[in-house]
């Protein structure tokens, strides 16, 4: 009795809707969950690479990430749970992928980076790993609010020849099946992720590109303001869910 009452109290204390939110991990088969839980799963190769790259000097300055940020375990803890964030220099929101590319360019002097470059992805996996299990905590900076609102508009706007919005699948029909595929709630808790379908590690950007081409819509350009707006909205929609690493998806 007492335990039930305590549990009920905890459930009531959660933000509205938090009880019935499910991540892609929750939706996976026990076999795939076991694969994700295995620290030597296929995504681990990127993590190992990222850890090595963290202390490797790069660019014209010959400095490593560690030279400026010291131990990632301390300096990067919670960063992935908070991003996207505001970039003062561009006076615009930036996602973690973009932030790492910016550090390579601005602070290491390695020139403009390709967001999908394997080294950037490895560093992204390593930095994200430092937030393992932490709750997504949207950055409260009010300068992000207009972009987050734009993201919500994009999420609820019908797109493409199939004329479907993200919300029609991920809010209204999650749990249903599109042919064999279970429609997840679409939370960005596990990125970058190793998708068995891709046979490699990929970003949230790539995942969303897949959904957009699925409805025959024009994908967002890599790192575009619209993509980051959508990422901001997805992140606040998933607030409180835990960062998954090393994520696996079918």
């Amino acid at each position: 009795m007492i335990r039930a009452a305590v549990l009920a109290g905890i459930v009531l204390a959660l933000p509205a809707g938090a009880q019935d939110r499910r991540t892609g991990y929750d939706d996976m088969s026990p076999a795939l969950q076991a694969m994700q839980d295995d620290p030597m799963n296929p995504a681990a190769f990127w993590l190992i690479d990222g850890e090595a790259l963290w202390s490797e000097p790069a660019g014209t300055r010959g400095q490593s990430c560690a030279d400026c940020h010291d131990a990632a375990e301390d300096s990067m803890a919670g960063v992935a749970a908070r991003y996207p964030a505001w970039d003062e220099e561009q006076a615009a929101p930036v996602d973690l992928n973009g932030r790492i590319a910016l550090c390579r360019d601005r602070h290491q002097g390695a020139g403009p980076q390709d967001r999908a470059d394997p080294d950037i992805l490895a560093l992204l996996a390593y930095v994200t790993h430092q937030s393992r299990g932490m709750p997504l905590t949207p950055d409260p900076d009010p300068r992000l609010d207009p972009a987050r609102a734009r993201g919500e508009t994009l999420f609820t706007t019908r797109m493409g020849q199939l004329n479907l919005s993200c919300a029609q699948c991920h809010d209204d029909n999650s749990g249903g099946h599109l042919a064999a595929a279970l429609i997840p709630q679409g939370h960005p808790t596990g990125y970058p992720q190793y998708r068995l379908e891709w046979e490699t590690l990929g970003t949230l950007e790539r995942r969303i590109r897949g959904c957009l081409t699925g409805v025959r819509a024009e994908p967002f350009a890599p790192g575009s303001a619209d993509f980051i707006a959508l990422a901001l909205y997805l992140q606040s929609r998933a607030a409180g869910l835990q960062v998954e690493t090393l994520p696996i998806r079918p």
């Binding site: 019908r158 797109m159 493409g160 020849q161 199939l162 004329n163 025959r216 819509a217 024009e218």
Partner: peptide, 24 residues
Amino acid sequence: TIMPPYHSTEGLNRVGERWQGTTL
């Protein structure tokens, strides 16, 4: 409805380049 319009391009938004002006 969530069922796509199979023979209309009316009111569509952000249609991918390769499908523009075509119907399903």
